Simulated assay, not measured.
Amino acid sequence: MPDATLDTIRLLDVRDTSLSVDEVLRAVTGPHVGGVALFVGTVRDHTPENPGEQVTELEYTAHPSAVEQLHAVAAKVAAEHPGTVLAAVHRTGDLAVGDLAVVVAAAASHRAEAFAACRALIDTLKEQVPIWKREQFRNGSHTWVGM
């Protein structure tokens, strides 16, 4: 990670263990922070790609370069939103409905900057970091998303 981002990117990870909103929130707080925006993505019981099908579980799989790509995404967002502090953790493995899949936070002196950076980080993460999900349906079928 470039030196310029060491103070602004505090926590980035892709892991197969449970996620903690508190861990991500702690990573971005500090005396200069006036606002924190959090995005918490959870496993839902339905999917827009297959209306009418009930999701029973998800399996997230990440490419070996996912953490490296996440660092590149965060560095880009940090450069586009100076003065923000960023953190993001994405889950892999088998997840049940209601489990945390991703937690993203952005902190700044003011709320507008925090909201903008948080939105940019989650949107760019979803577009560019190679993480895929397999949705398992109640009827026994499944589908891959993001491949």
Rank of each mutant, 00 (worst) to 15 (best):
D3P: 14
A4L: 05
L6H: 12
T8N: 11
R10M: 06
V14M: 02
V14I: 15
R15K: 11
S20K: 09
D22S: 15
D22H: 11
V24P: 05
T29D: 12
G30I: 07
P31S: 14
V33K: 09
V33G: 06
V33N: 09
G34M: 05
G34Q: 08
G35P: 07
V36T: 13
L38P: 09
F39D: 12
F39N: 09
G41H: 04
T42L: 13
V43L: 01
V43A: 03
R44W: 07
E49A: 15
P51R: 11
G52Q: 05
Q54N: 04
V55C: 01
E57K: 05
Y60V: 00
Y60Q: 02
T61H: 13
H63D: 13
E68V: 03
Q69G: 04
L70N: 03
A72Y: 07
A72V: 12
A78P: 04
A78R: 03
A79H: 09
H81N: 15
P82V: 13
P82S: 08
G83N: 10
G83R: 08
T84Y: 06
V85H: 08
A88D: 13
A88H: 13
A88Y: 02
A88T: 10
H90G: 05
H90F: 13
R91M: 01
T92V: 15
G93V: 01
L95V: 07
L95S: 05
D99H: 06
V104H: 09
A106L: 10
A108C: 09
A108S: 10
S109G: 15
H110Y: 05
R111V: 11
A112M: 05
E113D: 15
F115Q: 00
A117G: 13
C118A: 14
A120S: 13
I122S: 01
